[in-house]
Amino acid sequence: MGVVKAFKALALAAALAAPAAAQAQDSKVIGVSIPAATHGWAGGMNYHAQEAVKRLEKTYPQLKFVLATAGDPGKQVSDIEDMMATRNIDALVVLPFESTPLTGPVKRVAEAGKWVTVVDRGLAEEGIEDLYVAGDNPGFGRVAGEFFRERMPSGGKIVVLRGIPTTIDNERVEAFRKAIEGSGIEIIGMEHGNWNRDSAFTVMQDFLSKHPKIDAVWASDDDMAVGVLEAINQAGRQDEMWVLGGAGMKEMIKRVMDGDKRVPANVTYPPAMIATAIEITALRFVSNAPVSGRFVIGSELITQENAQNFYFPDSPF
């Protein structure tokens, strides 16, 4: 597909070169570099990036997009260098695989006078990007904590499953703890389920063996919630507790929408934030709207009332 597009671009450039230089100048190329779909959330992110590119190419014929997915930071650096060298991009939308290795290459793009949009994971150095679009990790924990407070006014015993030990996970859990402080809600167990269904399943089995009474579970992620719910089923303790996941997996949103008592709500950390970033970057080239700055996408509480707005049945996540 890339080759075909490249040929098309070449043909177009050749045809337009002499007589319509002005028109050719109007065409802008936006490079999009994201990590490959190696887990559920990243799969959703890839889906939304492709959808956004398709939609924008149809709406604005003068915009061209180059989309590259990378399986590791090294590949991502090469992708960005290739975009600069061979595609002459005017803007770069990048979700860095890791902050430090990507900082230098992205900085060079910015120094070449290109527009740079950074998504989700910030760079190691401040002030490189023109636009920063990110999810709200502390907000993710806080909204979840507030929901627990509201559902358990007289307190109770809960267990928590954490993700892969990272800053993201720490920020979420820290904010969650702060939000439930002084509410009488007691965290009686906390273990890492690594954002993985199988790990979450075994951790929850062991929590169920250890604690005779659990009022609720903060699974903190929908993949983990799947494992947790199955373990609760197996123990036959469905009526005892409810589970709050997070990130908005379609199956979980569906359960919230259907009013499942064990899955009363969800908290967003939308993989579609990549679409936000691409759309805003496009605005920079097709409108006069000022778009530089920081755009933090709030983590919202999804309940039965508003679940419809968050349900994307075609997305892989």
Binding site: A36, A37, T38, G40, A42, G43, G44, Y47, S315, P316
Partner: peptide
């Protein structure tokens, strides 16, 4: 398996 599942999960 990543490709078959389109990066997501096969259910």
């Amino acid at each position: 398996i990543t490709w078959l599942a389109d990066g997501g999960t096969l259910s």
